[in-house]
Design a protein around this nucleic acid. Structure first.
Lengths: 362, 362
DNA sequence: TGTTAGCACTCCTTTTGATTGAGTGCTAAC
DNA sequence: GTTAGCACTCAATCAAAAGGAGTGCTAACA
């Protein structure tokens, strides 16, 4: 063992071999296996000694005396931080991302969901997409669409292009199209460009006065609008590929499987998981096993990427997998997705400002 | 045994006891258990003889010689058809349905989904909600909402109040509100009240001519509208409480659990399951075990209710559970939900026609 | 003739004990 | 510092034994 407990070259090699073998096989790795498979010119006895050292140092564990070694969280940590092999670009992923981004980016919610789907499909782990709730935002547009004699549709578009609509049924009075158009105009003038929190049921008198439409009709419509606005504020949570994990031998034990099923349905727990990368401006956050406290995640690792567009975090995509997940693959997939989406968003941002200028000066 | 292979009173009693015990315990039921628990004044030996008869007649099976009896599909069938005890109304369910229906029914999709959620919650089985795809329908309303200099929102409302919207990004030209309003008017005039299939990209020339808006802008908007229309046609499939089933001891075997997970992700299989009640005007359809052919559903039963409003089937809600499900509970829950929703829809229908008349004559 | 007590028999389930084998730690020789 | 060799540990596997739930059959009984 090196004097100061630092890992020398050889120990790193052996640690890496153990981890990669374990990631592949999910079986405790013995010294003989390492000596044979990862030909490093050492006998199993030597490797055995080194492995004993690695265990003493906390990088490996032993399920029981006569078993091979298994990486500890600390072991995975140095593996992730120092030993990750760069991964060849995955053409399937690249293809999926291209077709994801071939249209325009309009709604972040849908983008995050679709991206999470791709990530889960590519990694075969579970992907959790989360969009950030907006506390303060501007209503960009609002419209009341006449549908029939008893129904109108209230449409609200928020600052980030999140769109919500609600069908409103009006009883008692028949609706006339010109009435709705007038009302729609008034509402649009009153609310568009205004911060969402300024909208309240209190404005009903003003609306009635300005539009000349009866209170009975305006009330349910404003109700619906407020409902839409509230929905715009919500962050969304998307869980993709939850069933993927259950295929892994980790979950041959039905209790573990049921535990996971409970976890995956617990929205609060998922939000906590997805928040792992919060505050982080760029780069991924890797949380291994129970590293971050008693959250019942001892057997899982999470890799989170946050998406920053225009200097603002619009959401995150996290991969949830077993601690022995294929970190290289997960990290490279998430990094690639992040890079491509942020790049595209930047391009579109530029286009927009250019066009807007052109539009303004016309 | 009675002469003609018919089930006499006593056999029915014993069959019922076996089935109900098995539904509760998921353990093969022995003659001693029946004699003791369902005090019917007979010794276990007599019951044993009767059970042997019931097996010979195909109502019961024996996993192996020295085990108790288990109901066969045929056994469940007579149980469901002839022996179901009427169930006391469930106040929890009633409460949930009341709050589900306290608002107006506007969108069937959302209603079916919410109702399926309640059913799955109440029964603790898996509920599958399906709305019927519309092959032919009328566009009730259409509108283009100006959002900002580069975006408009296309909104389409279908006959059944299904609403779809798509954000459209316009490059190259700045949008002016009056342009959009004019375009929206033209589109609304052209498409509203028209059958969906009449809308095609071919109409672009007409739109350009009538609205005076440039082709570059009209094209992506019509594209978006066609997209929305296509989405309106789709039937939706909602799976609620899929994880519920995994709690049952049926799935202690991880292979069975994984099989179920595959099943529940297979949209085509689910559609087939949910179609069980197709064509049926009213009443529920109960499919027990593999009754209906080789669909890999041997261990499951399905109870389906279809929802008919205005003489048209708008969708179905099915409960998927183990063959030994609590049929009484499932059937009564589904019947109650069906009754309440159809009743409410009828009421609203009446209201509407009354109001529409009033509106027309004004 | 239908019912029931009694008993031998079946066969799954659980327990127990022996065996196997992978892997270790230690020691001694190189 | 490395390695061959060996005793030791302990989970996993397997077979045999014990236990037990439930049956079918027979004979006696009302």
């Amino acid at each position: 063992m090196s004097r100061d407990g630092e890992l020398d070259e050889r120990k790193l090699m052996i640690l890496k071999a153990v981890i990669e073998d374990y990631i592949e096989s999910f079986e405790p790795v013995g010294s003989r296996t390492v000596a044979k498979k990862y030909d490093m010119g050492l006998s199993s006895a030597t490797i055995r000694n080194e492995m004993a050292d690695l265990e003493e140092m906390g990088y490996l564990c032993q399920p029981h005396t006569s078993a091979g070694r298994v990486p500890s969280s600390k072991g995975y940590r140095v593996y992730v931080d120092k030993m990750l092999a760069p991964v060849a670009e995955n053409p399937k992923l690249a293809g999926a991302v291209v077709s994801l981004l071939e249209g325009k980016i309009v709604e972040y919610h849908k983008l995050i969901k679709a991206a999470a789907e791709i990530i889960s499909e590519m990694t075969q782990y579970t992907a959790i997409g989360m969009t950030k709730p907006k506390e303060q935002f501007i209503i960009k547009a609002m419209q009341i669409v006449p549908v029939d004699l008893n129904h109108v549709l209230a449409v609200v578009v928020a600052e980030n292009n999140v769109t919500k609509s609600a069908m409103v049924k009006i009883d008692g009075e028949a609706l006339k199209p010109d009435m709705i158009i007038s009302l729609s105009g008034v509402l649009n003038d009153l609310f568009s460009g205004r911060p969402a929190e300024s909208i309240s049921i209190m404005m009903i008198n003003e609306v009635v006065k300005l539009s000349g439409v009866s209170r009975n009709i305006v009330l349910p419509i404003i109700d619906a609008i407020i409902d839409c606005v509230k929905q715009c504020e919500h962050g969304e949570l998307y869980t993709e590929g939850a069933a993927n994990l259950l295929k892994f031998p980790e979950f041959d034990d039905i209790d573990k499987a049921r535990e996971f099923i409970d976890l995956i349905q617990d929205k609060d727990a998922l939000k906590k998981i997805a928040k792992g990368s919060d505050g982080e401006k760029t780069g991924l956050v890797v949380t291994i096993g129970g590293e971050n406290g008693e959250n019942g995640l001892d057997d899982y690792s999470v890799v989170s990427a946050s998406y920053n567009i225009d200097g603002e975090c619009i959401g995150t995509i996290s991969v949830l997998g077993p601690t022995r997940m294929d970190y290289s693959k997960v990290i490279s997939s998430l990094e690639y997705m992040q890079k491509m989406i942020e790049k595209k968003a930047k391009e579109e941002g530029k286009d927009n400002s250019a066009e807007n200028k052109k539009g303004d000066s016309e």
